[in-house]
Computed example of a mutant assay.
Amino acid sequence: MPVPACKNIACEERILFALTEKIADGFLGHLPKFHAPSSNVEYIVPDKTEDWLATLRRIQPTILITGWHTPALPQEWIESPEFSLRYLCHLAGTVKHVCPRRVLERGVLVSNWGSTVNHTIAEHALLLVLGALRSTAQWNAWQPDTHNQQAIASSWHDAKTTLRTRSLRGRRVGLHGLGSIARETIKLLRPFNVTLSAFSDGVPAMEFQNCDVRQCASLEELFSTNEIIIECEALTPASRGSVTEKLLALLPDDAVFVNVGRGEVVDENALARLATQKTPDATAAGGGGGRRGRHRQEAGGDCVLPWMFFSKNHRSRIHR
């Protein structure tokens, strides 16, 4: 990114990129380093900056670009008369870890990626559901010797009875959460002629009606009446750990559990235990930017993908 020519309002601002090299490269495609002495734009790597408060006081940014690993704005700077920030541009999702509410109260404009990535998360939820139903991760173990016709026949017969691939069409699908990701997922599920229900504490009944989704009265009803559960509830003090081992045990045999929300909503230790009980079929977990939980365990042989899915029937594995 070249140093901007001072011919517009941007040059009246002091712009600070406070991003790790990995985040800058991932979001911007390169490192926006500025070397011109007269430049009003600076780039720092926050985890290599010994004194974050001193850096902010020195630069006095009016525009701050942040990411997942940017430290929280110091309260001392926020409350000081020298507080200069006018706009905080967060390149990722939740900005709570960087921006205390007091920043908003001081009139700072704050933005994040909002709903711009929701369709990609919904697509991944569908991918994981289909992958679990089709036992996709286990296919490689059943590739026959293409030079041996008898081996081919035997192998594919065994695969048919062991993999037990299934279709999504006509299934009962439940969603924990009814936010923008859930609504995008609902759109993708419609063509499969599924029966949809959902639960999200505090969401008005009208929202479920607008989505043409049956509202469950409780999480217990959601988990006990559906073959597939897609977890996409927001992480709040009330939802943290709300998907317990008791709830997961309510899933019927051959059920599928997919988590594209926050890992801390789910008791992942319980999920790992269930992966080795009741002959579970497919579990996988992954995450990015702290979005998912931190559990990591081997329990068999399936796949690793950057969100979580779980199917109760055959041997499986959880990865983080």
Rank of each mutant, 00 (worst) to 15 (best):
W68F: 10
A141F: 05
Q215K: 15
V304N: 00
P4M: 09
G293W: 06
T55E: 14
T20F: 05
V304Y: 00
A198D: 08
L189Q: 09
G301M: 06
P71M: 05
S135M: 08
V194R: 09
V95D: 04
R262G: 06
H319E: 09
A18Q: 03
A92P: 00
C99Y: 02
C6S: 12
V203G: 03
Y87M: 13
T20Y: 03
H147P: 00
A122P: 00
F27I: 12
G93P: 01
T116H: 02
K22D: 12
S167C: 12
P306L: 01
E82I: 10
V117D: 01
L31K: 09
E184W: 01
D51I: 06
D302V: 07
R101S: 10
S115L: 07
L126C: 14
R134Y: 08
V260T: 11
Q138N: 02
T236S: 14
P46E: 06
I121M: 12
L188H: 07
V129I: 15
F27P: 02
R102P: 00
Y43R: 03
G261V: 06
R172V: 14
V266T: 14
E21H: 09
S311E: 06
I15Q: 04
R134W: 08
G293A: 14
F83W: 01
G107T: 03
A36D: 11
Q209A: 15
A299F: 14
P2Q: 08
A285I: 08
V260C: 11
R240C: 10
A299L: 15
L126M: 15
S242R: 07
S224T: 13
T55N: 09
V304F: 00
S316R: 04
L196W: 10
E12T: 15
K7S: 14
T62Y: 10
N259F: 03
L88Y: 00
R183C: 07
T283F: 11
Q143C: 03
H295L: 15
K187C: 09
D145S: 05
L19Y: 04
G263M: 08
A18T: 03
N269Y: 11
P252Q: 14
D254R: 13
A24Y: 07
V243H: 03
P74S: 01
L133S: 11
F199T: 11
Q149N: 00
A217N: 15
F309V: 14
E233V: 13
P144M: 02
L128K: 07
E21K: 13
N313V: 07
S38P: 01
S84Y: 03
W307H: 05
Q143F: 04
L248H: 02
D25K: 14
K160H: 12
A92L: 06
L305K: 00
A255H: 05
L73A: 01
I230T: 11
L274N: 02
R171P: 06
W307R: 04
L250C: 14
H90Y: 04
V117E: 01
F310C: 11
Y87E: 04
I9L: 15
A141Y: 02
I23L: 10
V95I: 10
G131H: 07
L128P: 04
